[in-house]
Measured scan of single mutants.
Amino acid sequence: IQIFEKGDFSGQMYETTEDCPSIMEQFHMREIHSCKVLEGVWIFYELPNYRGRQYLLDKKEYRKPIDWGAASPAVQSFRRI
C-alpha cells in the first residue's frame, strides 16, 4: 500500500507491506489523505492500535478520504487482511 499526506497522491508518500498500529509513530504522519492499494485488501482504522471506525479498502486508487467512505482523513492505523 502507498499512503500520501495530501489528496490526489501528492505530498510525502510512504509504501509498506506491513501492518501499522500508529501512522504517527511509524511514518510521522497525522492523517492519510489519499492512498493506492497495490495488492490485497486493507482496513483503515480511525484510531491507533486498530481501534475506532473501520474502512475496507480493495485494490484500487483512493484520491481522497470520501473515496474509502470517510468524512475526514482521520486514519491512525491500518492492516492487511
Rank of each mutant, 00 (worst) to 15 (best):
W68T: 14
Y45L: 01
Y50G: 02
I32F: 14
R79A: 15
A71E: 12
I3F: 12
S72D: 05
M29K: 09
P48W: 01
Q26R: 10
M29W: 12
E5I: 11
T16Y: 11
I81S: 07
T17C: 12
Y14F: 09
I81T: 15
G7S: 09
E46N: 02
Y50H: 05
G40N: 04
R63P: 05
D58A: 12
E61I: 15
H33F: 14
E39H: 05
L38E: 09
C35Y: 03
L57G: 11
R30G: 10
S10C: 05
C20T: 05
G11A: 12
Y62H: 15
D58E: 14
M13D: 07
K6M: 13
D67P: 04
F78H: 03
I1L: 04
S10E: 11
N49P: 01
F27P: 10
R63T: 05
E39W: 06
F78M: 15
K64G: 12
Y50R: 01
Q26E: 14
R30P: 10
T16W: 14
D67E: 13
E39Y: 07
A70T: 07
P48N: 05
I43Y: 13
E46F: 01
L56M: 03
D58G: 12
L47E: 09
V75A: 08
I3A: 04
S77L: 00
I3T: 03
P21T: 09
A71L: 03
P48F: 02
R53L: 06
I23D: 01
I23Y: 11
L56E: 15
L47V: 01
K36P: 00
P73G: 02
Q12W: 06
E25W: 02
V41Q: 13
S10W: 07
S77Y: 02
Y62C: 03
H28M: 06
S77G: 02
E46G: 05
M13H: 10
V75D: 01
E31W: 14
K60M: 14
P48V: 05
E39G: 08
Y14P: 00
E61H: 03
P21D: 06
F4P: 00
H33T: 13
A70R: 14
P21W: 12
R80H: 01
I66G: 05
P73E: 03
K60C: 11
G11C: 13
A70G: 14
I23W: 11
Y55H: 15
W42G: 00
Y62G: 05
L38I: 04
G11D: 09
G52Q: 00
I3D: 01
I43S: 11
N49W: 10
L56G: 13
D19W: 08
S72E: 15
Y14M: 03
P65T: 13
K59Y: 05
C35R: 00
Q12I: 08
P21S: 11
V41N: 12
Q54H: 12
P48G: 04
I43C: 04
K36V: 10
S22Q: 08
Y55T: 12
I23P: 11
T17V: 07
E18P: 06
I23K: 01
S10T: 03
S10M: 07
A74P: 02
E31S: 07
S22A: 11
W42L: 03
K59V: 15
A70F: 08
C35P: 01
C20F: 03
Y45P: 00
G52L: 01
D19E: 08
P65S: 09
R30I: 05
I43E: 15
Q12H: 07
G52W: 00
F4E: 00
G69R: 11
R63W: 13
Y45N: 04
Q12N: 14
K60E: 06
I32D: 00
I1N: 00
A70P: 12
T17H: 14
I3G: 01
E31A: 13
A70M: 08
I32Y: 02
P65Y: 15
Q2H: 14
S72Q: 14
R80S: 08
W68A: 03
F9V: 04
E61W: 14
C35K: 00
H33Y: 11
E46C: 09
I32T: 08
Q54Y: 04
I32Q: 01
R79S: 07
I32G: 03
P21R: 05
I43R: 11
R63A: 05
L57N: 01
E39R: 13
S77T: 01
K64M: 15
Y50Q: 02
V37C: 14
I1T: 03
E31M: 07
C20W: 06
I32P: 13
F4T: 01
L56C: 04
C35D: 00
T16G: 10
E61D: 06
Q2I: 15
E31T: 14
P65R: 12
I66Q: 15
G52V: 00
F44A: 09
P21I: 06
F27H: 14
F44N: 00
N49C: 05
Q54D: 07
K60L: 07
G11R: 04
D67I: 15
F9R: 04
W68Y: 02
Q12T: 13
L57M: 15
A70S: 10
S34T: 01
I1M: 07
I66E: 10
L47H: 13
A71I: 05
R51Y: 03
F44W: 04
E31I: 13
Y55E: 02
Q2K: 11
D8H: 14
L38T: 11
G7Q: 05
C35Q: 01
F44P: 00
Y62L: 15
G69D: 04
A71D: 02
A74T: 03
E46A: 08
E61S: 02
E31R: 13
E18N: 14
I32N: 03
Y50K: 00
F78Q: 02
M29Y: 11
F78Y: 08
F4K: 03
S22E: 07
Q12Y: 12
V37H: 05
R80G: 12
A70Y: 15
Y50M: 05
D19K: 04
K59P: 03
T17W: 11
Y55V: 04
W68R: 03
G11L: 04
H28Y: 12
I32K: 01
H33E: 13
M24G: 10
I43W: 07
Y45V: 00
R30E: 13
E5L: 11
I43H: 03
R51C: 10
M29V: 12
I1S: 00
T17K: 14
G7T: 08
K60V: 03
S72H: 02
R53S: 05
M13K: 07
R79K: 02
G40D: 09
V75H: 15
R30F: 10
